[in-house]
Design a protein around this nucleic acid. Structure first.
Lengths: 192, 192, 192, 192
DNA sequence: TATGAATGAGTGTTCATTCAT
DNA sequence: TATGAATGAACACTCATTCAT
């Protein structure tokens, strides 16, 4: 990675953090430059506009690592593992997701990226959808809506925890993860 | 209601709509004035600042009407009715709630109003909490988190529908309401 | 005095006070109205503009009462009495004079009023000028300049006292009056 | 001096002139920018607010050069020289002083700067105060008041001359300087 | 690669003033 | 005589963006 590329990456990371904390509109280009120890002009060498930089901050940079097994699992285990992974993934990408959740409401170009981000199908999801189609699972008909709603829930709960505990870089407690998993599990499983 | 009071109310309604559609920062005071058929100066006679107006737009103006029965219902019916009411309530107040969801992330004064709005306990909720405490229902331990997550979900699904169908003042389809209700029902009920 | 005239007078007095305390530019018409327990519109019935009101506030409303003796006095007594009267007069009209001193620097229409106010000749001054012309007193050649400078001095000292003592409606101490009188006396008398 | 520093200095000088001529409130930031051949935004890079700029315009930038002799002079010569120097100093710094005189009446932050500006003691003043204390001179008890009053007088006379002669950058005539000196001399000396 | 210097086009806000009632 | 309601025209200040060096 050349120096230019490293600088570009650094700008993205620092700016993502700012956008997540303060929102796109309230983050000034001067703050971005300061956070990167660069002049504003320098930042503009890497990104042609503030909006370009926003796009860069929310564009997924790494793919989900491919997953094992799935087929062998019982439906219950399948959902459990899937949901837990989902929670971890949200936790890990919370900055990008928070930006997407917030800004996609008003910058419609971001809506597509948000959906695309949320709609990535890993091994588990494929298997779940297969089973739904086979009738082995009853499920909310549009699985995207589940993912959308679930992501929003998790993000807003994370955010609430962050504000109410006044600590910034918060992670979920294991207990909360368990509860969320259980909730989604039975919600998804539905009536026996 | 005097003329002044009517004008004030009108400003709130028109502005709420704008804030919900375009976001607080992207709604200019000039647009607000135009939407109200007033000069900017006139708007400022009613609200001392744009932020004051924001607060007015999200401050709950009417309380939930008190509810009937509750005690007599089976747990399943109780939750079902409760969730359905909740969905209707969210649908009805979606503009305020969308503003709160979005802006409370960055304007921390709004967080409290958001929580207070979400945390209103009507008759059903009291009964649910009673039953949880009696052990008749297993439930997500902090009921507030459920409400928070559920509200976010519903709002973001509503929003997604709105964007993907390109129709503005959207209501939920009954089918979707059913699905959401079922999801929440079994999620809340948990394993038998 | 009719009710209208009384109201007009009241507006002048209250406003003069405000202008003196806060300056013309920093006194808002809304404050003026509030200080008078009137609506802004009502104030505009009496004065066609803010500037009109300013003029009214600094226009001398009452003449110097005519004075006794003068001719019989020794030069020293003459100056002493004259200066003391002058100080008392400044003290009494300090609000008008402060406004004039300050605002005439930038609103040139006021310069004339300021000079006219300062240039009023009472019995003492006439006698002093007579004696100067007869050569009985050596004096600063342009007596107006003396009055101008002296008035400014007294006002700025009054003002300094007011600020440093943090009391608003201050009067000079007798001791200070004595000193000022002595200073002016010997300054005017000059070398023997 | 870097380009930035030169620009900053230029802004101060041009703005000082405007403030002195038109007053703080009546000088618009747009005029300041125009007078400096800069955009308003550029001016704001150098000064965070109009008030900051005001402060910069009245903050003394250079100290009085230390003076010679003093001790050897007769009291009369001492005062004469001192007063003449004072007049020259006021004449030289008339813009700053006029701003201070006018604006300190309403912007109380400036009062301190005004006093500090006026209260600088050069060699002559120290010697005068020494002699007062020794009883060799009778004097107005609070020397600060003399300086305050004297400065105001000189400024307002200067101003009057400026207005009545309709010439802007006026200097005192030598004759007037003599008269003012004489007046102050005998005022300060008092009765023999 | 990096920046110091500069700006056009806003942005929220203020205020003296008007007028129908 | 008095005012509630409204506004045009400004104003201080901001910010994303550009460009010569």
């Amino acid at each position: 990675m050349s120096k230019g590329e490293r600088t570009k990456q650094l700008i993205i990371e620092r700016t993502r953090s700012l956008f997540a904390k303060k929102g796109y509109d309230m983050t000034k280009t001067s703050e971005i430059a300061k956070a990167c120890n660069l002049s504003e002009a320098a930042v503009y060498k890497y990104f042609h506009s503030k909006k370009d930089l926003l796009i860069a901050c929310v564009t997924p940079n790494e793919e989900q690592p491919p997953k094992q097994d799935a087929k062998e699992l019982s439906t219950e285990s399948l959902i459990k593992i899937y949901v837990k992974e989902k929670i971890n993934w949200i936790e890990k990408h919370q900055e990008q997701l928070k930006i997407l959740l917030t800004e996609s409401l008003h910058h419609h170009e971001l809506s597509d990226i948000y959906l695309q981000q949320i709609d990535q199908e890993n091994g588990y999801e494929k298997e779940i959808i297969t089973r739904i189609n086979k009738g082995e699972m009853k499920l909310i008909s549009d699985f995207l809506l589940f993912r959308l709603g679930f992501t929003s829930s998790v993000l807003s709960i994370l955010n609430h925890e962050r504000i109410s505990k006044k600590k910034y870089d918060l992670h979920f407690s294991e207990a909360l993860k368990e509860e969320l998993t259980a909730f989604a599990l039975y919600g998804l499983l539905g009536k026996k």
